[in-house]
C-alpha cells in the first residue's frame, strides 16, 4: 500500500489523490444519474400503469428501447453519435465541451435514462401489486388521478419495491465504470492509470477493488437502515412486528 503515498509522475500530488478524485467522479456520476433515474423512472412507470390511451404505449417503447441495448453502446450514442446528428451548431457546442465534462455529461444522461427504464418496470410492478381496492377507495374519497398516485399509490408501491431499488443503486454505482470508455477518469480508470504509470498491478487494482467493496458495504447498510425505517406493519409480508 506504500504505492498510495508515492508522488505521481506529474509531481503535483500522490497516488492517493488520484484515487480520491476517481472516487469523487464515480460518486457524483452515480448520485446524479440516480436522481435522473428516479424522476424519469417514476414518471415512465406511472405512465405504464395508466388505464389506456397513448401513455402506456409510449412508456413501453421507452422501457424496451433503453433496456434492450447495451449500456456501452448507448454511452457511445450519446458521446459519438448524438453530436453528429444534431443541428451542426449544437453538435459543435457539445463536441467543444472540455474534459472531464465532455465525458461526464453524456455518461450522466445515459446512465440516468438507462436506469430509469429499470426503475420504471419496478414502479409499475409495485403499483400493480397493490390491491385494486386502493384505487377504488382513493376515487371514492374524491382524489383525482394526480393525488391518487402521489398520496396513495406511489407511497405504498415504493415501500414494496425498496429492496429491489437497493439493487438498482448498486447497479448504477458499478455501471459508472462504463464511463471510462468515453474518457471519464472515474475509479476503475484510475486503477488503470496508476497501473500504467507504476506497473504495480496488484496494488493498483487491489486498492480500488477494496474501495468498491467498502462502498458496497456502506450502500447495503444504508439501504438496510432506510428499509427498516420506512417499513409499515404488515404491508410487506413478514414485516409485522411481533
Amino acid at each position: 500500500m506504500s504505492l498510495l503515498f508515492e508522488t505521481t509522475p506529474d509531481g503535483v500530488g500522490r497516488y492517493i489523490d488520484w484515487i480520491w478524485s476517481g472516487l469523487a467522479w464515480t460518486l457524483s456520476l452515480a448520485s446524479g444519474a440516480w436522481i435522473i433515474a428516479l424522476v424519469v423512472g417514476t414518471l415512465v412507470g406511472v405512465a405504464r400503469t395508466l388505464p389506456g390511451g397513448i401513455w402506456p404505449r409510449l412508456g413501453r417503447v421507452y422501457v424496451e428501447t433503453f433496456r434492450n441495448i447495451p449500456l456501452l453502446v448507448q454511452m457511445f450514442f450519446w458521446y459519438f453519435v448524438l453530436p453528429e446528428i444534431l443541428p451542426a451548431r449544437l453538435g459543435l457546442a457539445i463536441k467543444q465541451m472540455d474534459p472531464p465534462w465532455s465525458g461526464f455529461v453524456p455518461a450522466l444522461v445515459c446512465l440516468g435514462l438507462v436506469t430509469a427504464a429499470r426503475i420504471a418496470e419496478q414502479v409499475r410492478a409495485g403499483v400493480q401489486a397493490l390491491p385494486t381496492g386502493q384505487r377504488a377507495a382513493a376515487s371514492a374519497l374524491g382524489f383525482g388521478r394526480g393525488g391518487m398516485y402521489r398520496l396513495i399509490l406511489l407511497p405504498q408501491a415504493f415501500r414494496i419495491i425498496l429492496p429491489t431499488l437497493t439493487n438498482e443503486f448498486m447497479t448504477i454505482f458499478k455501471n459508472t465504470s462504463v464511463a471510462l470508455t468515453i474518457g471519464l477518469v472515474e475509479l476503475t480508470a484510475t486503477a488503470r492509470e496508476i497501473n500504467e504509470n507504476t506497473f504495480r498491478t496488484f496494488e493498483a487494482y487491489g486498492v480500488v477493488t477494496l474501495v468498491y467493496l467498502v462502498i458496497a458495504l456502506l450502500a447495503w447498510s444504508l439501504m438496510y437502515w432506510i428499509e427498516r425505517s420506512v417499513q409499515l406493519p404488515s404491508l410487506v409480508s413478514g414485516s409485522a412486528r411481533k
Binding site: 455501471n175 465504470s177 462504463v178 476503475t188 487494482y205 467493496l213 458495504l217
Partner: peptide, 17 residues
C-alpha cells in the same frame, strides 16, 4: 458478494492480468 460488489470492467482487468 465480492463479485457482485465490483464492476465487470474491473473483473475484466483483473482476469486479463
Amino acid at each position: 458478494n465480492l463479485m457482485r460488489s465490483i464492476p465487470l470492467i474491473m473483473v475484466i482487468f483483473w482476469v486479463f492480468f
